[in-house]
Amino acid sequence: MPHEARAVIAVKKGAPVEVLPVLVPDPGPGEVLVQIQACGVCPTDLRHRDGAAGEDFPYLLGHEAAGIVEATGPGCGELAPGDYVVLAWRAPCGTCRSCRRGRPWYCFDSRTAQGTPTLLDGTPLTPALGIGAFAEKALVHARQAVKVDPSARPEAAGLIGCGVMAGYGAAVYTGRVGNGDTVAVIGCGGVGNAAIAGAALAGARRVIAVDVDSRKLDAAERFGATDTVNSRWTDAVAAVRTLTGGHGTDVTIDAVGTPETFRQALDMRDLAGVLVQAGIPDRDQHVDLPLHDLFSRGGALKTSWYGDCLPTRDFPVLIDLHLRGKLDLEAFVSETILLDDVEDAFGRLQRGDVLRSVAVL
């Protein structure tokens, strides 16, 4: 029997979100029903609200969440009611051509629940990123629910479900930052600061934070930045090259995703350096580059999908790092809010006033 729950809905493109009652189905085979405890306000939710991520309105927003398993369908393995989980928006299928090649982080057929939440009048909803966790209850595939240590507060733990994992993985897995490397991170929001933290944990000797907002640069130092560059007032490429002895960085991570920041990241690299594209560009953005520039500098240009992570492997590790005091997840939580406050939180996110607002249920 469907479960009624309050949820944040993007009813139509660009309109303010609404908190409405919805019906969430019982879990079917391989599915779990999760009682959501906390869900972060991520820029991707804003992209869904504004139609930049697609036109499948109405959307059930929210995906950066932690909660308690309330019920399971058949075939859910070791998951059981009462388990404390973080939700993942990518869940490798294990059978697609990428998974079979031993690259499950690129899974081309990620699992999501087949049950469809609806409004009370029966209108089907599209769960953003296959989750829809700005709700009292969420239906997800069992592989999207990753058990973690319940000692971590849900307000902090849920953030590894998207932004923290995307940034950390961009540095550690996509960029392969190693001991002694120099790293620049452009954009010091949630993803960028997680990349800074990941680079620091991986042993980078210099981690340079680049942003146009001095408040974000101050925060970046807390996550492990050794140097900061305010690109509103300074030529960021020149500043990074000066800080690296004129050479440029071994790894540069663009956590913004605009043509301007991509070009900056490209030019900040040392010879044979790596550029990691972690920020999500708009569909209509383009970059025009001389092909010889790409060839002559060598190295690699990489797109980071969800930090090239394996949630079942990486979520518990990040939680353990947090509980051991090595990764401060609490520092990403700028404020806690209610579901009714999500629209206002979008405004604070756009203004750069917060790293993450977290809705607590």
Rank of each mutant, 00 (worst) to 15 (best):
D341P: 07
V358A: 10
D341W: 08
R348N: 12
R351E: 12
V342W: 12
R351K: 14
A359F: 12
G352S: 04
D344A: 15
V354L: 00
L349G: 12
G347A: 10
G352L: 03
V342Y: 14
E335I: 07
S357E: 02
L361I: 13
T336H: 08
L338E: 15
S357N: 07
Q350T: 14
L361F: 15
L355D: 06
L355V: 14
V333R: 06
F332Y: 14
L349M: 14
V360K: 12
G347V: 04
R351N: 09
R348V: 05
G347K: 02
D341S: 05
A331F: 05
V358S: 12
L339Y: 02
E335N: 09
R356N: 01
E335A: 11
D344L: 10
F332H: 08
R356M: 04
R351D: 12
R356I: 07
F346C: 03
D341M: 02
L339A: 08
E343C: 00
D341N: 08
I337D: 04
R351I: 10
L349R: 01
L339I: 00
D340M: 11
V354A: 07
V354F: 06
E335R: 13
R348G: 13
E343L: 01
R351L: 10
S334Y: 01
R356Y: 02
D353I: 06
G352E: 03
Q350Y: 11
V360T: 14
F346K: 02
T336D: 05
I337M: 07
F346D: 01
L349K: 03
Q350D: 12
V333N: 11
A359C: 13
L361Y: 15
G352V: 08
F332G: 11
G352H: 03
F346T: 07
L349S: 14
F346L: 01
V360E: 13
G347W: 00
S357Q: 04
S334T: 15
S334H: 03
D353H: 11
Q350W: 05
D340Q: 13
G347L: 12
